[in-house]
Amino acid sequence: MTKVTLYIAASLDGYIARSDGGIDWLSILDIEGEDYGYGDFYESIDAIVLGSKTYEVGLGFDQWPYPEKKSFVFTQRHLQSDREDVVFVSGSVKQALADIEAQGLENIWLVGGGELINSFLQHSLIDEYIISTIPIILGGGIYLFPPPTPEEKLELISSKQYPNGLLQTHYRRKVKI
């Protein structure tokens, strides 16, 4: 059975990027030797799901940020890539997830952005949430959970506070009975 985990950082006021898509504010997290559990998490996943704008942000890095993992990019645009590990998806999130599962990929990282996260929420497809709350108020930008967002009951698995003020919380979706 496929498990989808939203692993993401957000500002204290609930934004994942500035209005222009900028994520420069995340640099306050750069502490030598500290990865906030990212390495272990990355090793635990089989594939990555992301929106086209998040994909384009990743292209702007010095090197592809998701090496050795198959990346499924949701888009309605006609994008292309020379990378064999990047697949563009234009169908529904439910069908795409079924196709991903059919490939034997079980642990899926939902990277973002807000619109794609909301699509997964609309269908109750996010099993776990690992949210790193950054001690900054941006005052505007791209919401982590853009409205309208459906109600989703969660249970806390764990939380960890870091010396720089980052608070990482790990939740699991409560199964509806």
Rank of each mutant, 00 (worst) to 15 (best):
Y38H: 10
Q95C: 08
T2C: 04
T2I: 14
S71A: 14
S71C: 15
D82I: 12
S81K: 10
V57R: 00
I31M: 00
E43Y: 00
A9M: 07
G51R: 06
I16F: 01
D62Q: 05
V87H: 13
Q76M: 06
L6Y: 08
A17N: 06
I31R: 10
L6D: 04
S92M: 06
R77D: 13
L59W: 05
L6N: 04
F74L: 13
I31Q: 09
G39D: 14
I23W: 05
D46Y: 04
D13V: 10
L26F: 02
H78I: 05
A96Y: 04
G37M: 08
K53L: 12
I45L: 07
S19F: 06
M1G: 13
Q63H: 07
L26K: 02
A17Q: 04
G22E: 09
E56H: 12
S27T: 13
Y42G: 01
D30L: 10
S81W: 09
E84V: 07
I23N: 00
F72N: 06
D24Y: 01
G14N: 12
G91S: 15
I23C: 00
V89L: 13
A47C: 15
V57K: 03
V89G: 12
G60I: 01
S71V: 15
F74I: 10
I48W: 02
Q76F: 13
Y55Q: 03
I48K: 01
V4P: 03
M1D: 11
G51I: 01
Q95Y: 06
G33A: 08
Y36N: 02
R77S: 14
G91K: 09
L97Q: 07
L50A: 11
V87D: 14
V57L: 11
A9D: 01
